[in-house]
């Protein structure tokens, strides 16, 4: 549905986006991750045709965004960053405007407003002026606007920003559900969101794609991935840590806490984590340790995120 090839964007001497390419198919939910100012919003703005790229091509549903902007935008729903809306209008008035702009009128317009009001929980405030509503409502109003024409492609810039935890959860499940038969891009810097809603994620840092994969693949890049976390109850004795370290296939051990003993074992390269777990259990029964917890770490996305994006930015700030 979306093909972006070699997008670059310069604002004066500043390079905001530097050679980003990606594709998005129907049924995919693509997460854009990255630190603030990494170029996520700029990329999304280029995909929607709001700002032209300095170079590169974007095709949306087969329409080149530069040559056939209207045809391409018909397929798009867009939630801009900060969720702007016309604050002098009522919620119904605003959604009606959005619907009419999308060519809906009469009954189909009414049905569309009703549908999105239900999906975004706007029922109680439909007749209120937007300027009287809280940030969370405004955010959902703008989100409602983006799906009013049931678009095939959705581009959401920080769709859960400013929402409370319940609303965040609702919006995430909404995105996941809609992702089954739409193509969705959304940006966020909340990492659980990527795991909760995305089928694929791209990490962008200073205008470049630094990682691209499913959340599971990205997590596997974490240094913690595959490590064993062990909690030993009771008093396992002095040498327990050393004995664990001495097991075959242990690369290194990190002590997370003493008494009760909590350690993390990192398996050597060719040792599957499951084999190491079995070895630990055998050692435990041999030494009569009480194992309270033993688990294989999946790896955490924020570790991956930090290890990919942070080193460079700190270098930058030291200059």
């Amino acid at each position: 549905m979306i093909q972006a090839r070699n997008l670059t964007k310069h604002f004066g001497p500043k390079v905001a986006v530097d050679g980003i390419s990606f594709t998005l198919e129907k049924g995919e939910v693509l997460g854009f991750l990255g630190p603030n100012g990494a170029g996520k919003s700029t990329t999304m703005r280029m995909v929607t045709g709001f700002i032209p790229p300095t170079s590169g091509e974007i095709s949306v549903g087969g329409h080149d965004i530069a040559r056939e902007p209207i045809a391409a935008r018909r397929l798009l729903g867009y939630l801009p960053e900060n969720a702007p809306s016309y604050s002098d209008m009522t919620v119904t008035g605003f959604l009606g405007f959005a619907a009419e702009m999308r060519g809906l009128s009469g009954d189909s317009k009414k049905r569309a407003i009703h549908r999105v009001a239900e999906m975004c929980f706007l029922g109680p405030v439909l007749q209120q002026g937007i300027d009287t509503l809280s940030k969370g409502y405004r955010h959902r109003i703008c989100f409602a606007q983006s799906i009013i024409h049931d678009p095939e492609i959705l581009i959401l810039d920080e769709p859960t920003d400013g929402l409370d935890p319940n609303q965040k959860h609702e919006v995430r499940s909404l995105i996941r559900d809609m992702g089954k038969n739409k193509a969705i891009i959304f940006s966020t810097h909340i990492l659980e969101e990527v795991e909760a809603a995305c089928s694929r994620a791209i990490i962008i840092d200073r205008g470049r794609i630094v990682a691209n994969g499913t959340p599971a693949e990205l997590k596997a890049r974490s240094p913690e991935s595959g490590a064993l976390t062990i909690h030993l109850g009771g008093s396992p004795g002095e040498g327990a840590g050393k004995k664990l370290r001495a097991l075959a296939g242990v690369e290194r051990i990190a002590t997370l806490g003493e008494n009760p003993l909590r350690v993390r074992l990192y398996p050597a390269k060719n040792t599957p984590s499951a084999d190491l777990a079995r070895a630990v259990l055998q050692a435990a029964s041999a030494h009569a340790w009480q194992i309270e917890d033993l688990r294989i770490e999946e790896g955490r996305l924020d570790d991956v995120f930090r290890s990919i994006t942070l080193p460079d930015t700190t270098k930058e700030s030291r200059k």
Binding site: I70, R73, R74, P80, P84, S85, S87, M101, C142, Q145
Partner: peptide, 14 residues
């Protein structure tokens, strides 16, 4: 100022 320009110019209107 309100940022609605972005909304308006990403709707199918020239």
């Amino acid at each position: 100022r309100m940022g609605t320009l972005e909304l308006l110019f990403t709707m199918p209107v020239s």
